[in-house]
Write a protein that binds this DNA or RNA. Structure first.
Lengths: 252, 252
DNA sequence: ATTGGCCGTAACACAATCGTAACATTTACG
DNA sequence: CGTAAATGTTACGATTGTGTTACGGCCAAT
């Protein structure tokens, strides 16, 4: 019934038509960072990889440029003059123009508390300095790849995984996946926010519900069960562990 | 293999009132798209999956064919010559003949804003290019499932089960099934929305009626009685239990 | 009034699922 | 290397949801 022979061509679709944005055909990345050395590094790497860049030196400017340019993604340093990264993040999430723009936090090592609060505030992912250019680009690609508000969709798709909420069926490739109730809700939550990192506490809130009182480590067990079910007939693991932070749905 | 752009060769579309059912056995999908590569891919996949297809290259033709053929669903590219997808969408919603036809938008990445407007304009779902054939077919099934209520049909069919609403007769395979009134209404409801999951509360609403005050667990007992009747002479159980959610009619 | 079918409910049986702790492995870092 | 912390993995008792049965009430036809 399925035609695997055609899947190869699908990759061409995206390029077939030029993006109709007025910004140009390259994705625009807004860099929010005050250290020159890091700005130079980011700018160089992003431009080499075919992105357009814009640079903001402090929080005020960041909010300003974000609203003006509507970039495709934002790299946001956590330690800023005038306005902390947390404030900028929260601020940006208030405007419809910037509410959906993915934000990647840049944090120094040892700011784990901030990571969690940042993810709470609506950041999508984070990079710990120092980071490699490959890692930077990988995270960026992942963050740009995600679909729009999948929240209300009846059929959720991520990579070769499909979830039909109408019939409550999950498939991966050709195989049908059987999930226990909690596993189903967990996967649904991940697929509603593909690529986004969630802490154990966040998952307990949104998947288990606020009234439940459950150990954070319980999440690990359910992640394990979900992985087992999803990987039963395939090789690649689509759930990424982010040490000290949580889990995310992501391509390997 | 490249198929030339074909339109429908059936000759039996009457202008008479009962529109959709008499059109033929296969659902007809109208493809509105100007790029050959994508047309070919869509056409091939849809036909392989058992649909009939018709093709329009621009907005004018789209409205024309939609009114003439009254397809069961429309795949509508957002970027078109002559008339934008938005216009076509709005236009089609003005005519009673095409007002109910589900529309799936095809958008390139970076047109997310348009998606929202499109959904406002009456599109039912959207596909972001690039998409997999599997996703295409899944979304198509979903909109057809929603928009094509078997509700009005005199004879409902699911797998080897047939229900004649007029004579109140139910058969499975060769065997005739005798059902109590509530079991009949329950099965009818499932067969009107095959594959869809219903919670106990939903079933109480739609099968028992809103005014009744009945325990949710009562549904279980009737499910049991229905299963017993349906499985009396056959092996496979067509009613699937979705733990913590409800029940659905489904192939094993 | 009596019968028989149908219905709703409660009670019990059973299996799936869940949460947790304990142990194993990996990772970060000196 | 070696240690500590975090995550992976496993097993098991407890809980919960569903399957199943039985029973009493209702109603229509006899």
């Amino acid at each position: 019934m399925m035609m695997p022979a055609t899947t190869r061509h699908d990759a061409d679709f995206g390029q077939a038509k030029p993006p109709k944005s007025l910004k140009g055909d390259k994705p625009l990345i807004l860099i929010v960072e005050d250290e020159d050395a890091i700005v130079t590094l980011l700018d160089y790497n992003l431009r080499s990889a075919g992105y357009d860049t814009a640079i903001a030196r402090d929080g005020e400017e960041a909010v300003d440029l974000a609203l003006t340019l509507e970039p495709n993604a934002i790299l946001l340093d956590w330690m800023l003059p005038l306005r902390s990264g947390l404030e900028v993040c929260r601020h940006l999430r208030r405007f419809p123009e910037t509410n959906e723009v993915p934000i990647i936090m840049l944090t120094a090592r040892g700011e784990e508390q901030d990571k969690l609060r940042g993810l709470d505030m609506g950041a999508d992912d984070y990079l710990t300095k120092p980071f490699s250019p490959q890692e930077l680009l990988a995270r960026l690609r992942a963050v740009l790849r995600r679909a729009q508000p999948a929240r209300l969709k009846e059929i959720l798709v991520f990579a070769d995984i499909q979830m039909d909420q109408g019939s409550h069926k999950v498939t991966r490739g050709e195989a049908s996946i059987v999930l226990a109730p909690t596993e189903f809700r967990l996967l649904r939550h991940f697929m509603q926010y593909p690529g986004r990192v969630f802490s154990r506490e966040q998952l307990l809130d949104s998947v288990w519900g606020r009234e439940k009182d459950v150990e954070p480590r319980t999440v690990d067990v359910h992640i394990r069960r979900l992985r087992k079910a999803l990987n039963a007939h395939s090789e690649s693991d689509v759930i990424r562990t982010i040490r000290e932070v949580g889990y995310a749905l992501d391509l390997p």
